[in-house]
């Protein structure tokens, strides 16, 4: 079992989510940086879809009541381990660490990236909803956000930890570049919108969360004046509301929305946005060939 001594900014149980439930109104949810969760699971020998912990920004402290094998991935920041009779030691990110019973893991403020992932051999146990243990902050469904004093059960370790060399991506600290493709409603915008969307930097707004990354910059101009009847959304959809400022939807996005979507971020690049910090520049990269030509 694991006791949450400090949950930090936001500590959630997340796996790879519950895709396929949009018709009944459920977001896919799941880890925002799926690459980091998969890597952490692989390092401790879990299935890629085992539930782990997603920690926003840092400030968490966890106590392990039994020996455990854990790995921390995603954001980069100070990690330390303390156990009875041992001096506190720095813990390594991106590789499996075996800790004795009574060990405490502290995760400090992220210096690069925004979200840490903690996997424990055996996975975090929680009541599944539609096959997933993910917390969905939009609907409030799935396990409740973790609080100090919460005790988490751990499953039985099944697989073999991958101790071989694994690339551990460090979240970029400068401009983030993500690839986009045309969305269904590009024609609701003024001529040249694709170029304006992709041709300059946007800035990550502090209002961003698991629902979406909100961007600041020069507003895009809409030409269609009609009201768009709500339509289905996907993770990665770039929605432009009346303000003209885009939001890129992440895992806890609403299943439908009433604002036009001129572009979609390719799934492989969504982990970059999951780690994008407020104030960080974002550039949308158009694929060749230019779809407007």
């Amino acid at each position: 079992m694991i006791t949450v001594l400090q949950p930090g900014t936001q500590l959630l149980i997340e796996d790879l989510g519950r895709p396929g439930c949009a018709a009944v109104g459920l977001s896919p949810s799941g880890a925002l940086d799926t690459r980091a969760l998969r890597l952490a699971n692989r390092l401790v020998g879990n299935d890629p879809g085992a539930a782990g912990l997603e920690l926003l920004l840092g400030g968490a402290e966890l106590e392990f009541d039994a020996e455990a094998l854990l790995a921390v991935t995603g954001a980069c920041g100070p990690l330390s381990l303390a156990a009875a009779g041992l001096p506190p030691a720095e813990a390594a990110a991106g590789r499996p660490v075996r800790v004795p019973a009574g060990a405490r893991l502290r995760i400090g403020p992220a210096r690069a990236g925004l979200r840490y992932y903690v996997a424990v051999a055996g996975g975090i146990e929680a009541e599944p909803l539609m096959g997933s243990r993910s917390t969905d902050v939009l609907s409030g469904l799935g396990p409740a956000p973790l609080r100090a004093g919460d005790v988490l059960a751990v499953g039985s370790p099944a697989g073999h930890p991958d101790t071989g060399w694994l690339p551990t991506p460090v979240p970029p600290q400068g401009r983030i570049v993500v690839r986009v493709q045309p969305g269904p409603r590009l024609d609701w915008f003024a001529r040249g919108t694709w170029q304006r969307l992709t041709g300059r930097d946007w800035t990550v707004s502090p209002d961003s969360n698991r629902v979406g990354v909100r961007l600041l910059g020069r507003p895009l101009e809409r030409t269609a004046a009609d009201e768009l009847p709500s339509e289905g959304l996907i993770t990665g959809a770039v929605q432009v509301p009346a303000s003209g400022l885009p939001t890129v939807f992440l895992s806890d996005h609403p299943v439908t929305g009433g604002y036009p979507v001129p572009a979609v971020v390719v799934p492989a690049d969504l982990p970059l946005l999951a780690q994008a910090r407020p104030g960080q520049p974002v550039r949308f990269l158009a694929p060749p060939p230019d779809p407007t030509s």
Binding site: P19, C21, A22, A23, E231, G232, I234, V255, T256
Partner: peptide, 14 residues
């Protein structure tokens, strides 16, 4: 096909 989402004027297929 993972999801089929009907709405007021559209059906989204993922």
């Amino acid at each position: 096909v993972v999801d089929l989402v009907p709405a007021a004027r559209t059906i989204l297929a993922t």
